[in-house]
Design a protein around this nucleic acid. Structure first.
Length: 837
RNA sequence: GCCCGGGUGGUGGAAUCGGUAGACACAGCGGACUCAAAAUCCGCCAGCACGAGAGUGCUAUACGAGUUCGAGUCUCGUCCCGGGUACCA
């Protein structure tokens, strides 16, 4: 112990903890001394502690944001105390529909609104005391940032991964824009709840599906929580199956015309039409009693018979008129018979070909073989249209399967094929393999892997985003803007409102979109769509360390030094999209040779959600927590500590106003403990042991994000250190100040300096514990009789079984239950003893 | 419907290689200090029954079975709550 200053400090009154003064003082000092600005070029053991950057709303920081940021800050500060150089940057995801809609609502241009909101956010974040390196702040709306977002687009374009196609898109009639599939929730717009319609527009897409296999396989290498990985796996939706060709029987045969009756058969020399279906259950092919095509299927017209033509055309037209919502949410099955038949390659029998909208053109081949016996949807359809239902799979127990006419039998485990010719008796997986092999030998099947994942539509017919850097020239066609002409600056438009023309507001500025073709110099036209916000956020983590560089998107040396991100923390609502897009863009940049790694986030953890008094916070309920009010009343340190204490970080918890007082009391007691601390006096071995146990516990809990139990452990230690009228020793409080510092950084700095230290507590290192001091010489063991706890014994920690039994029998409370001979003794050294009689 | 989480005192939550359920905190109750209050400090605080009392017994981790010497923890079934997803063949 070396205390260079008199202690306790003269004139310092116990109980004089003034959070506002302490917090202001240290925030100023950190700023003045550059405490939170690491040396990115030379600092030892770099550690990149990243949190998801917020969208700067007009309402200001939400308590949920603060919960997220504080958890990351604690993790970062802890890593710093462990000797890492920690980089904790901050930025703003300020483009996008949120900002734009709000701007429309209040009638102020987003270009004016956003900087205001950012100032407010920055003020709030600084007030919370995060260890942010503000030199590297960024906003996605800054031309020096989105210049490189456009650059990212060009890299994808160069590699053939950006393409344009006319596609049925989700159109929100309220926001007047195209939505990605992911932005449609339950058939309605994610943002405004309006029911989405179907429209056809030319859109830019990224070929993320090319990366589906890698995006899936790499998940196994990542230190992410399983729930997040599972969500990504489900989203990618790999299914292994086969494409099987069904040959359409000659239309003439079924035309019912005079020529047909004149003896012409299916052997007429006509090129046979094939319908390819995708299935994961090739084993059930003998049960395929009909085929179904999606209404948009290209073969619909050519196979339909004249008798059925009117009905089919009506049905197809009706399906086209439907919006995507009705199509995808209506479960009542409808369909129409085409009049045509195909041959089931298993049974060799003709089966009818139907059209129904429960089959989707965009998945697989847009056609299925229907197996009503073993697929619920097909079963439902077959019942409605009275199509044959055949059992081709039977369960392990004969007769226990139920009637196949009543319900589809979808069990797989332990099941065997029946009614399947020479494949009878095979298991499901054997059947699949054997049938696909057999069909493949006739070129009638091929194993195929399908993904649920769709290509990423990045076009937005909106104003508030980075213009897509493409020029259309009558002579040269689609021309990418050369990199040295970036950024394509978003023009200032007085009227930035979207309309339902399906064209971006940028199309109103002729001066802007008229440009010279970069290739031939003739008059040309700019792309007027802007890109999806998710593209802005798909690469920002690469930009942070290099945010001051104007010549490159990210500096090679810095990137090598700081990435991939060591720890990423964010909300589970981004578990799928943001994380998947970021991984995709990173992989592409890796393949293009810009970076050495292909996964951006080594470790990811999702924080939980904060509710208030058991209910979700919302403006309409009026139960939103405004962090400013609480920080003013209790101080940032108490607020942070309470947020981390109210529940497990990864699960979130219930915010209750009264709960904060517990955190504040804890800090008050810490303050008094330092001021009361004595330098001499006897060492209390129990307190000392507790200290070492606490150092270990807190050091183990923080990396696990188990902040609530870390705080509980420190409270316990505080209680034992101060039990009764006891005044703690200086060497008892000093390490506690260090343990508390990640949670309550300002008070920790103040107390650390009061304890006579001149450097920041965050440069003091993490206290170590002595394993020898953790061990207690005696232990309290539970004694059970027939499994019920009947008493406890205090014995040496390495007590033998015989001695333990003897001690137990000496306990009256135990002995009275031992009514007969002890048949068996269960002895867990140091934990418990069970006497079985 | 399917896929993930989760169900523990008045409340938020501890405890999972199966081993004394309820740590820590909030609220509440009682006490010390005080003229009084606040603050602070000390004690009590799952339910039921018996007992004057110290205490003793029984029951308890959504519900029902099971495995085990022993289950909040593992297995099976059921019911609720939260989140995601939606005809993906």
């Amino acid at each position: 112990m070396t205390d260079p200053v008199p202690f306790p400090p003269a004139g310092d009154q116990p109980g004089g903890y003034d959070p506002a003064a302490v917090e202001e003082k240290w925030q100023a000092r950190w700023r003045a001394e550059g405490t939170n600005a690491p040396d990115l070029e030379h600092g030892a053991r770099p550690y990149y502690a990243l949190m998801m950057f917020p969208y700067p709303s007009a309402e200001g920081l939400h308590v949920g944001n603060l919960f997220a940021f504080t958890g990351n800050d604690i993790h970062g500060r802890f890593q710093r105390l462990q000797g890492h150089t920690v980089f904790e940057p901050f930025g703003f995801d300020a483009f996008g529909i949120h900002s734009e809609n709000y701007a429309i609502k209040v009638g102020i241009h987003p270009g004016e609104l956003i900087p205001r909101n950012i100032d407010n956010f920055r003020r709030q974040v600084q007030r919370t005391g995060l260890m942010v390196d503000w030199r590297h702040e960024l906003s996605t709306t800054d031309p020096s940032y989105y210049k490189w977002t456009q650059w990212v687009f060009l890299q994808l374009y160069k590699r053939g991964l950006a393409y344009k196609k006319k596609a049925a898109v989700n159109w929100c009639p309220f926001d007047k824009t195209v939505l990605a599939n992911e932005q449609v929730v339950g058939g309605a717009c994610e943002r405004c709840g309006t029911v989405v319609e179907q429209r056809f527009l030319e859109q830019w897409f990224f070929r993320i599906t090319d990366y589906a296999g890698r995006l899936l396989a790499n998940l196994d290498t990542l230190d992410w929580s399983d729930t997040t990985k599972t969500a990504q796996r489900n989203w990618i939706g790999k299914s292994e199956g086969a494409e099987i060709a069904f040959v359409v029987q000659d239309v003439m045969e079924f035309a019912g015309s005079a020529t047909a009756t004149a003896g012409l058969s299916g052997e007429v020399a006509v090129t046979p039409t094939e319908i390819r279906v995708f299935t994961t259950r090739a084993d059930t092919i003998f049960g395929a009693t009909y085929l179904v095509l999606a209404p948009e299927h290209p073969l619909v017209d050519s196979i339909t018979t004249d008798e059925q033509r009117d009905e089919v055309q009506d049905y197809v037209a009706g399906a086209a008129r439907q919006d995507l919502v009705t199509r995808k949410t209506t479960r009542d099955k409808t369909g129409v018979f085409t009049g045509a038949y195909a041959t089931n390659p298993g049974t060799g029998m003709p089966i009818p070909i139907w059209i129904a909208d429960y089959v989707l053109m965009e998945y697989g081949t847009g056609a299925i073989m229907a197996v009503p016996g073993h697929d619920e949807r097909d079963h439902e359809f077959a019942k409605i249209y009275d199509l044959p239902i055949v059992r081709v799979v039977a369960g392990a127990t004969p007769g226990a399967d139920g009637r196949i006419e009543d319900a589809a039998f979808t069990d797989v485990d332990g099941c065997r094929l029946v009614n399947s010719g020479r494949f009878n008796g095979l298991s499901i997986s054997e059947g699949k393999a054997a049938i696909v092999t057999e069909l493949a030998s006739h070129k009638a099947a091929i194993p195929v892997v399908n993904y649920r994942l769709h290509d990423w539509c990045i076009s937005r017919q909106r104003y508030w985003g980075p213009p897509i850097p493409i020029v259309y020239c009558d002579a040269c066609g689609v021309v990418p803007v050369p990199e040295d002409q970036l950024p394509v600056v978003l023009p200032e438009l007085e009227d930035f409102r979207p309309d339902d023309s399906g064209v971006s507001p940028l199309a109103r500025s002729e001066a802007w979109y008229h440009t010279a073709c970069p290739s031939c110099g003739k008059p040309a036209r700019r792309e007027t769509d802007v890109s999806d916000t998710f593209l802005d956020s798909a690469w920002y983590f690469l930009r942070y360390p290099s945010s001051d560089r104007d010549d490159v998107p990210f500096d090679a040396a810095l990137t090598k030094r700081w990435l991939p991100v060591h720890s990423y923390i964010g909300g589970n609502e981004h578990a799928v999209l943001h994380l998947l897009y970021s991984r995709f863009v990173t992989m592409v940049l890796h393949d293009a040779g810009f970076i050495e790694f292909e996964e951006p986030f080594t470790r990811f953890r999702a924080h939980g959600m904060i509710v208030r008094d058991g209910a979700k916070m919302s403006k309409s309920k009026g139960n939103v927590v405004n962090p400013d009010d609480y920080i003013s009343e209790w101080g940032a340190d108490a607020f942070r500590t309470y947020l981390m204490f109210l529940g497990p970080y990864e699960e979130g918890g219930d915010f209750r106003d009264k709960g904060i007082s517990g955190a504040k009391r804890f800090l008050d007691r810490l303050w008094r403990s330092v001021h009361d601390a004595r330098r001499d006096g006897d060492v209390d071995v129990e307190v000392r042991r507790k200290l070492h146990q606490t150092i270990r516990k807190v050091g183990e809990d923080i990396p696990k994000l188990s902040y609530n139990t870390a705080i509980a452990a420190m409270m316990e230690y505080m209680n034992s250190m101060r039990s009764g009228e006891r005044k703690p020793r200086v060497d008892e409080v000093r390490p506690l100040v260090q343990l508390v510092s990640p949670f309550a950084p300002h008070i920790a700095e103040e107390l650390w300096s009061i304890l006579g230290n001149e450097v920041s507590v965050f440069d003091s290192g993490w206290p170590t514990y002595d394993p020898a001091l953790l061990v207690e010489s005696t232990v309290t063991m539970a004694v059970q009789v027939n499994g019920k706890t009947r008493g406890t014994i205090v014995v040496a920690k390495d007590v033998t079984q015989d001695d333990a039994v003897a001690a137990a029998m000496a306990e009256p409370g135990v002995a009275k239950f031992v009514t007969g001979a002890v048949k068996k003794v269960i002895f867990v050294p140091g934990r418990m003893l069970n006497l079985v009689i």
